[in-house]
């Protein structure tokens, strides 16, 4: 067991974890932040995407101990208090979600994408950049629309 200290959604947290504990397990089971999901075992579906030190990463492919000392943002920490993040708003306004399971990872991936590319995100880039996020409900049409709308809004 190892004690880790990190910042999650702006709060200092610490926990004692088995070294084999994945970051996503620590976030879900110990911090009870259950918005981050697990949808596959092979680092492909992206339901677990969080931001680690400002970059989108797959929390199912990282040990919690690797995140010791890091600054982690999960879907629960994206909004500014009661004010939703523009990407969250855009997903709702454009019907970019159905069952909601892939949504937190999609939103965290989209936020990172917009941070890197700015407002001029074209459809082709969005579709390419979504390679690491799988949705089974929406057929992606409205997810792409949501991200383009959010990019415009944030730019």
């Amino acid at each position: 067991m190892t004690v880790i200290n990190l910042t999650v959604n702006g709060s200092e947290v610490s926990g004692e974890v088995d070294d084999r504990t994945l970051l996503v397990q620590f976030i879900r089971d110990q911090l009870r932040l259950t918005g981050t999901h697990v949808g596959c075992d092979t680092s492909q579906c992206g339901a677990c995407v969080v931001h680690v030190d400002g970059k989108a990463m797959k929390s199912c492919t990282m040990l919690a101990v690797q995140a010791d000392g890091s600054d982690v943002t999960t879907i629960e920490g994206l909004a500014d208090g009661a004010e939703l993040h523009p990407v969250q708003k855009a997903f709702r306004e454009n019907h970019g979600l159905q069952c909601g399971f892939c949504t937190p990872g999609m939103i965290m991936a989209a936020t990172d994408m917009i941070n890197r590319h700015g407002k001029d995100l074209d459809e082709e880039t969005i579709r390419e950049e979504l390679e690491g996020n799988i949705c089974r409900c929406t057929g992606y049409h409205n997810i792409v629309k949501s991200i383009a709308a959010a990019a415009k809004e944030m730019g």
């Binding site: 680092s43 492909q44 992206g46 995407v49 970059k55 989108a56 990463m57 797959k58 492919t61 990282m62 991936a109 990172d112 994408m113 890197r116 950049e129 390679e131 690491g132 996020n133």
Partner: peptide
């Protein structure tokens, strides 16, 4: 390589 999240790590 991989996807954006994989490339970040």
């Amino acid at each position: 390589i991989g996807d954006p999240h994989v490339r970040n790590r």
